[in-house]
Simulated scan of single mutants.
Amino acid sequence: MDEFAALTERNRQLSKAMMQSVFELACDLSGLGPFPEQAAKARGTAPVNARLMQIQQLIEQLRADLQGLRGPYLMQQLQGLGVDQHSRALQLHIGSGPYVLDGWINLDVFPAQLSTNVLWGLPFVDGQCRYVFLSHLLEHLFYPTDAMALLQDIHRILEPGGVVRIVVPDIAQCIAAYQDGDTGFFRDRVEHWGAGDGQATRLEHFLAYAGAGPDPAWLFEAHKFGYDQETLIRALQRAGFKTILPSTYMASTHSALRVDEHSQIASAKHGDRHYSLFIEAIKE
C-alpha cells in the first residue's frame, strides 16, 4: 500500500471515529445541561459553546477546501473516460462496487472507474444518458432527502425515452417473513451477507434491513430506509417519471439492462424468489 492509499484508509477510519464521537458528545451535552458552562465559568476556562463553534468552523473550512477539489477531480476522471459535455447515449452504472459492467461508466465511491459521491450530484449534463442501472444503492441514502435528490438527478441526465433500472431490498418480503416466522428467509440471508455473531433474531434482521438505528460509525455503510413497490413507485413519480414498470430478475425489456446477474446481491434469493425488488422507469 503506497503512502496516499494508506492515508486514504486512515482518513476513512478517522471519519468513522469522528461520527461516533460527535454522537457521544451530543449525548453528553444533553445529559449535562447547563453544568459544563457553569463549570467552565467557575474554572475560568473557555466556554463549551465557544469550543464547539471553533470545532464547527474547522470542519466547515475543511469541507469548503474539499468542495473546491470536486470539479478538477471529476473533470480529470471524465477526460480519462473520454466523456465531455457533447457525449450522448451514455450507460451509467451507479453504485457499481466491484461489479464492473463493460461498456458502462461504473460510478461509486473511491476506488471506482468514476469515483465520486452521488450526494454531490451526477457529473453529467441534461439528457446525456440512455440507460442508468443502480443495484442496492438507494437504500443506503436517507429518504426522502438524499434519495429523492438522486432520483431527480437521474431523471435530469436521462435522454427522452431513457430508462433507469433500480434494484433494492424488497422490504415487503422481509416483513412477511418476520410475520410468518420464516426462519429460512433470514438464515439464507445470513449466508449471503453475514450478520454479526450469526445469532441475530428475526427482529434484529428486519430492523437492520429497514435501516433502523445504525451505529453512527457505520452510518455510511448501513441501510437507511426500506422500500416496497408502492413506495419506490411513489418516489419515482415524485422525481418526474410517469411510466414506471415493475420488473423481475433479468427481465428487462431492454437488452442493455439485463445486467442483474452481474450483481451478486441482486442475484441472491431464498428458494425460488429473489430477495430484491426490481423496477424500471422511463423518462418521457
Rank of each mutant, 00 (worst) to 15 (best):
L151H: 08
T45A: 00
E191A: 02
H192E: 09
D126L: 01
A217G: 09
R10H: 08
H140R: 10
R238W: 08
P98A: 09
M1T: 12
R273D: 07
A268W: 02
I154E: 00
E24L: 08
S276C: 14
Q152T: 15
R258I: 07
F278G: 08
P216S: 06
R238T: 12
F110Y: 13
Q56K: 15
A39C: 04
G68T: 03
H274Q: 10
G184E: 15
E221Y: 07
G196H: 05
L134C: 11
F278Q: 08
P246M: 05
F133I: 02
A147V: 06
L81M: 05
S87T: 15
M148F: 11
L141E: 06
L138V: 14
E284H: 05
Y73H: 14
F220N: 09
A268T: 08
T116E: 00
T253Q: 12
V22G: 07
V48D: 00
Q91N: 15
E230A: 11
L62T: 09
G162L: 08
Q179I: 15
E37F: 02
L138K: 11
K41C: 02
L107D: 02
S247F: 00
L90C: 13
F142K: 13
A176D: 14
V125S: 03
Q85W: 04
A176N: 13
Q77G: 07
M1G: 12
K41Q: 11
T8L: 05
G194A: 09
E37I: 01
T253I: 09
D84M: 10
R189W: 03
P47R: 08
L52P: 01
E284L: 09
Q61G: 03
D84A: 06
Q264D: 12
S96N: 10
W193D: 10
P34Q: 08
V125E: 10
R12H: 12
A6P: 00
I157L: 04
A26G: 08
A281S: 03
L232Q: 04
E204C: 07
L277Q: 05
G68A: 12
A26E: 14
S255H: 04
H270Q: 07
D126C: 09
A210N: 04
P36V: 01
L232P: 00
A39Q: 11
D180Q: 15
R187H: 10
V22H: 12
P111D: 06
L52S: 06
G181A: 09
F35C: 04
A40G: 01
W120Q: 13
S267V: 03
G82P: 12
F225V: 15
K41L: 07
F185W: 13
L7E: 14
T231A: 08
G240Y: 02
F241M: 06
P111L: 05
P214K: 03
L52H: 10
V83T: 14
S21N: 14
K224E: 02
E139P: 10
R88S: 15
L78E: 00
G196W: 03
H86V: 13
F110Q: 10
L78V: 09
L62W: 09
V168T: 05
P216C: 04
G213P: 06
L7W: 11
D260E: 04
R273Y: 11
L119D: 08
G97P: 11
E24F: 06
I94K: 01
Q76D: 13
F206P: 06
P47C: 00
L52F: 07
H86N: 15
E139Q: 13
V132K: 00
L236S: 03
Y275D: 12
R43T: 00
